[in-house]
Amino acid sequence: MAVIEVNNLTKKYGPLEALKGITFSVDEGEVFGLIGPNGAGKTTALRVLSTLLEVTSGTVTIYGYDLVKQPDKIREIISYLPEDAGTYKNMKGIEYLHFIAAFFQDERRYQMLERGVRIADLGERLDDRIDTYSKGMQRRLLVARALMIQPKLAILDELTSGLDVINAQTIRRTVKESAKEGTTVLLSSHNMLEVELMCDRIALINDGRIVATGSPKDLKAEYHAANIEDVFVEVVR
């Protein structure tokens, strides 16, 4: 069952058309990846779906809610993790998780915090100020923030950008586990290997247009390619 339906979505920044009528759908519990080079429109697409940017034209529904008419409803069921997202550096790690949990219903808060602490896996460092954290620790805290609320849809932009292999692997594992628990994941990456490892289905995006959609396995077969990177090169050629 499709829980995200994007139809002919366009997004203009003044005269610049960043999305030129993209269409795709994501099923419940699926890990769906938007892949493309820098400036292809991945982040714009995710920002629109996260209710951050206005829709220029086209329609988007998320779990039945219309993005333009019911953004408040959508914000109740999604969690968005921007690329290079930051935190309030004067807070301690645990205070940041408390701060986020306070936006949600009382009865779920304790459960959320418990889950957040587990996902962050920062041990006693959670009691330290965030400005003392390494980049990897900060990203783990942010992933914990995004997933502790058990959103129906997690929108993750460049999930492991700038992280070392160990931190990147830990975070990928966490996201996969959340998907198994029922969270639908929409992620973007220009790391083709990461997408191949994580996604059930992918959409290749280039210059604001979706140029191919399918499972990594099907796409590789269709384009007789060894990996998704080769698929992409073949598609945009």
Partner: peptide, 14 residues
């Protein structure tokens, strides 16, 4: 600058 605004704007708060 710290990219915290985007997170704030996607939380369930008006």
């Amino acid at each position: 600058e710290n990219k915290t605004l985007e997170t704030l704007l996607t939380l369930p708060v008006r």
